[in-house]
Amino acid sequence: MKKVMVLSALVLLCAAGLTFLLSRQSGNWAGVDEVVVEKIAKQAGRPARKPYINTDQGDLLLFFFLIAGTAGGFVGGYCFRELFPPEKKP
């Protein structure tokens, strides 16, 4: 347990350092679907249209991402416990 705690703290430190470095970089961090797929489609005369169900409005998309992450995490965790039950201590 102690080992896991130390490792988690180390990973969090690394993540904080990485976030700091990335935030100082000049990239705009757009997705490749925007900088490659949509750009090429636009040049070819077939620009992307808005989604039929457009959740990309204000914080709505963030809300749906949170719901999706929670649901995915729950399903994954439930099945994980089925497949990898906790080890019983003698």
Partner: peptide, 8 residues
Amino acid sequence: AMHISEGI
């Protein structure tokens, strides 16, 4: 990322 967007 890789997803091809609507209408392309």
